[in-house]
Design a binder for these strands. Structure first.
Lengths: 115, 115
DNA sequence: CCAAGATACCTTGACAGGTGAGGTACTACG
DNA sequence: CGTAGTACCTCACCTGTCAAGGTATCTTGG
């Protein structure tokens, strides 16, 4: 049953910022990109997706504007800000630390000390 | 400042189960082992720690008994159950999947498709 | 001897993020 | 015309974290 969502919880914002680093996009498209990149195994729930974008905008990491398509559903495009870029690099480092920490804590380690 | 706790959120139970896999222990000791293993960079907050143990016991993954030390603070020891063992191996697999997924989503990837 | 710190446990209330369930509006297809 | 896809949004609920408070015992330094 899909990927345990609590494991992704701390990476939601970072994943979104990573996509916007490549250029402006809109929530729905980013989610479909994630689905494709994960080989169909993961995408955000819609409620999670849109609240994440709102959170990121409110904290000044991204800014938005309406697309001007005159056909089909309207799209809200997002741009990553300087603050968002910094946040991303920071989060990326934190992820690397956390990953190594968890790896060392959930692995089947050999004894590290006598006793 | 320390490790972002949201990144650890989904691994709390797995980390505890991993320790109990090596033998019975008590909450405080496990937390200090975590602190030592992380090189002093991480340990659970007490409230988080004890609620996690209670959660695991209520879900049948661990069982507890009071230690019989007749000196010092009393200790509640925990034993991992068969259910807990299965849970651990399951969680460990999920962690590996999640880790790879996040790695692929927060990395600076090269283009994967034309456009 | 007594204060401080370590050991070891516990609970409560607030808060943040994820999510099910619901909604809107447009386009395309058969 | 009904269904499915695109694309957005909101609300109420649940779960896990954590600051803050508490209890009790033992050890160590002044």
């Amino acid at each position: 049953m899909s990927i345990a969502s609590d494991l992704l919880r701390g990476s939601t914002d970072t994943i979104i910022l990573a996509h916007l680093l490549k250029g402006d996009s809109y929530a729905y498209e980013i989610n479909k990109n994630i689905l494709r990149k994960s080989g169909g195994s993961f995408e955000f729930k819609e409620a999670t997706l849109y609240t994440a974008f709102r959170r990121l905008e409110q904290s000044g990491c991204i800014s938005s504007y309406w697309g001007d398509e005159d056909t089909g559903a309207r799209r809200r495009y997002y741009t990553i800000t300087t603050k968002g870029r910094n946040m991303f690099y920071q989060n990326q480092k934190e992820w690397q630390n956390a990953r190594e920490l968890i790896d060392s804590l959930v692995g089947i380690w050999e004894d590290t000390d006598g006793k």
